[in-house]
Structures are given as C-alpha cells and as structure tokens.
Amino acid sequence: MIQVKDLHKHFGKHEVLKGINLHVKSGEKVVVIGPSGSGKSTLIRCMNHLEKPTSGTVIIDGVDITHPKAPINKVRQDIAMVFQEFNLYPHKTVLENLTLAPIKVQKIDRKAAEASGMKYLERVGLAEKASAHPAQLSGGQKQRVAIARALNMHPNIILFDEPTSALDPEMIQEVLDVMIGLSQENITMVVVTHEMGFAKQVADRVIFMDNGEIVEEGTPQHFFQSPEHDRTKLFLSKILRSN
C-alpha cells in the first residue's frame, strides 16, 4: 500500500529525514509520534508528494510517486490528507468544499457528489452546516468538515497531519471521535499526532520518530508498556507527565 524506502529529505543543509524505511499495509492504522522537529510531518507530506524527497522512493499502490513522470494527480485522488490548519476553501460553502474535487477532478456527477457529500457530513455530525461557509464554523467543526471532504474522494488512504494540534482543548475530542469511528473501516490511516490516548486506542502500530529517524515501532501495547529505547522512554515520560 505505502512503501517508503531509504527516504532522505534536506532543507538546505539541515537533514530532516535520514533514511526512513516504512511499509504500511492496506487497512493498517499507523500512528506516528515524536517531538516537534523530528521529521514526522515531513515524512507524511512526502507520502503524497507535497514535499519532494531529496532521495529515496515512496511507492503508493505500486506507483513510485518520486518518479518525475509519476501520475501524481491521479495517485493523490486515492490518498487524502487532513491538515493541521484545516485548509478548507473559504470561498465555498461546506458542501461545496466536499464536492469541488469530486466534480472537477474525479468528474463525478454533481448530484452524486452532493448526495455522498451529505452522507459524510451527516456522519461527522454537520449536515445542518452544509450551506454555511467555513468562517462560520468552530475549529473542531472545520476539522470535521475537512475529514468529510477527504472521505468524499473515496480514498484508500487518509493522511492526518497533526489534525488536532490547532484546536482548542475542548474541541479535540469531537475530532478524535470522528477519527476513531473511521478506524473501524478498512481505510488505511497514517496519523501524525500527539494524542497518546488516540494512539493507544486506534493504532495497529505506533512509530516513534526522533531527529529524522524511526527510533522504535511496535504495537501500542509494546510501545507504551515496554519501550526499548532510551529516547522513546524519555519522550513518553515527558509527554505522559504533561498529559
């Protein structure tokens, strides 16, 4: 499904990713954690080529998207992304946010795109906001719309790039609840987050990154109860204390 091989990324002289190898299986829920600056966001952004790797390959469903001739726009239709800052289209209504890409990119009939859009809005509990504009929504509502927008592309994979980090604390749970609901399905999820409770509950595998490397990975049980590496222990002790 997603294969990352020896991925390196430099920003100028700074090496953000130092040879990442990762294989995410179809339907797997992978949670990536780590301190800020560890390269986890860069890694997930390489998975849909928003970030261009310096070297290495990223293969999505058999297509090497690092190849210059890769049909990247086609691949991206299958691999949706939910951003930290929501990035809804402010000049469109909520429902139009959901239908724009299906209609213009996937060439789906407007009626059908709107019908499935309404279905997903209902699912995230925001059907009554269909004709509102993003500016009229709270942060939590915006992110739920962003998730519905991702779902309305009917992707095989959804990437979440710190989806709750820009939210006020009281709005985090409503977004996590939607994501937990989603995890019951056969959709592949890669989630960069600081929400350890979510990781414990949802992840098939937790990946800990630090300083551009994958330091440790394993099941949530292994990860939270018997981490092997000192860096992992240090990080967990800090983050669990602050939680």
Binding site: N48, L50, N73, K74, R76, Q77, A80, M81, F83, E85, N87, L88, Y89, L100, A101, K104, V105, Q106, R149, M153
Partner: peptide
C-alpha cells in the same frame, strides 16, 4: 495551505 489542499486532492 490552500495550494496544498488543492494539490492534495489531485487538482
């Protein structure tokens, strides 16, 4: 972010 959102959807 608007550019990135659009690109990420396959535009």
């Amino acid at each position: 972010g608007q550019l990135e959102a659009g690109l990420s959807q396959g535009f």
